[in-house]
Design a protein around this nucleic acid. Structure first.
Lengths: 272, 272
DNA sequence: AAGTGGTCTAGACCACTTT
DNA sequence: AAGTGGTCTAGACCACTTG
């Protein structure tokens, strides 16, 4: 009356072949997850294809509903599957990855009047958009004031925006700029003008010399997941970029959250 | 008989204060997760502290066990909490992050005979170790042969190892080196000698000029999670580094999986 | 032995999608 | 209306940790 083996009917395009090994130490829901994972990894289930429904899995393995739901939950956490209410569970489609090369902030890319994100996206044929622009003066978090080398209670101009590619949000960014540089410039306007804020900073006499990018990864907060429309099992990049001028002054810090499945960061390092 | 409100007893150090709003659209388990998440984020529950037990949560909120387990599952997936069988659920401790600067492969760091990982770790006072060294000749995956600019069926030398910091595994790496360079050298030995394999490659007359690192992030495979001892909710970096010599020849590709909570990658970009 | 989380069963009702 | 996943209850037994 426990873990009865069904007649070996081919269920759902022949994905379900194996049964559970009741003698195994491995939890039943993990064994089910293992079999589905294998089907995904070896291509028997391709991107976008529907997994067997909960009802089919219950029938095939002869287990309770919670057990198959745990198995599916595991695949969702791993980023292998996504559930769509009322439709089914599907093998996760991997969105095309955008490669960001380390020369993306080179001045020549700014010359033609395009900000970095717009130029990059157009280069791969994606339609770039920017929304949710908010500009304010505020006291930045400690991580930012440290990088700007200013006292913790100093006010800076913060410029937040969200970037979309082909209508899908992929990146949240907030730039922090010392007020002495930003005040009275187009940096305070939603449209920062040709070449973006880096061009405006250079207009102010701060010729940019180098950037430092600190990259980390983690799971998104709920807020980030909502704004980037992330499905379960998608981590984010946190990228903090500090811009320095010729005098070595930190003139901007940009704190960016990027959808982890939408970017590949490419950096070049000299061997000296 | 449903969602009964308990006498407002202070449970478990006063973490549980609020109740469920039954009129809310938000699922009960999400409301519970929200309250616990808030306690973690605003510091009422600090790193390493124990969350209320399932029994306490059931008692406090007047819900079924599966409901509180779903709430806790959510926090685990977000990387905020870790469960320890028989002990309780604890606020995730963030291990100290190791910063990898972009000059970490500069030749001067190799001069004193240390491979990059060992030198870096010692610099921050962590005890570095290497284990699981496996060396073989094989046909590399496509991503690798493309970067080495060799035909897909060409054999290369693959050198796999696992790196540990203070006894905890943090990184898995496999280097792929063309056989013409590796054969007959210490690259084929578990101990690659002073300065590591980059020093051996230079011994062969290939002076290194630059590296390109391609960084992506994703959830680990089961295999990776086991080898790196990752808890749920920890993503990994995938870093593919290609080394080029003065002639522009790709002389090595290193495919690395790094525990996402153990590293911060720091890169410097010129503004040109 | 007591307390904790891990796994599993067997139902129920709901909301969303498709036919 | 039928099929799908989302949420929830109310139990059960097990395995691990601590006193």
């Amino acid at each position: 009356m426990y873990r009865r083996v069904k007649e070996l009917g081919v269920v759902s395009e022949g994905i379900l072949i194996d049964q559970i090994d009741p003698s195994s130490d491995r939890a039943v829901f993990r064994q089910i997850a293992d079999q589905l994972r294998q089907a995904i990894e070896n291509g028997r289930l391709r991107e976008g294809e529907k997994l067997p429904s909960e009802a089919e899995l219950i029938e095939h393995y002869g287990v309770a509903r919670m057990t198959v739901r745990q198995a599916i939950q595991e695949l969702r956490n791993e980023g292998l599957a996504v559930a769509e209410h009322g439709r089914g569970v599907f093998v996760r489609r991997r969105p095309p990855v955008k490669r960001l090369a380390s020369d993306r902030f080179a001045r020549r890319h700014r010359k033609d009047g395009k900000a970095a994100f717009l130029a990059e996206s157009e280069a791969v044929g994606a339609k770039p958009q920017v929304d949710h622009i908010a500009i304010s003066e505020m006291q930045p978090p400690q991580e930012i004031s440290e990088r700007l080398r200013i006292a913790p209670d100093t006010t800076v101009v913060a410029r937040s925006r969200r970037y979309l590619r082909d209508g899908h949000p992929v990146e949240l960014a907030t730039s922090y700029i010392p007020v002495e540089i930003a005040r009275g410039t187009q940096i305070m306007e939603p449209n920062s003008g040709p070449g973006g804020i880096y061009a405006r900073i250079e207009d102010q006499g701060h010729t940019l010399e180098r950037f430092v990018e600190d990259v980390s990864t983690r799971m998104p907060t709920r807020e980030e997941a909502k704004l980037l429309n992330l499905s379960a099992g998608t981590p984010v990049f946190r990228l903090i970029r500090t811009a320095y001028d010729l005098e070595g002054m930190a003139v901007e810090v940009c704190d960016t959250i990027m959808s982890g499945d939408a970017f590949l960061l490419s950096y070049e390092l000299p061997a000296h």
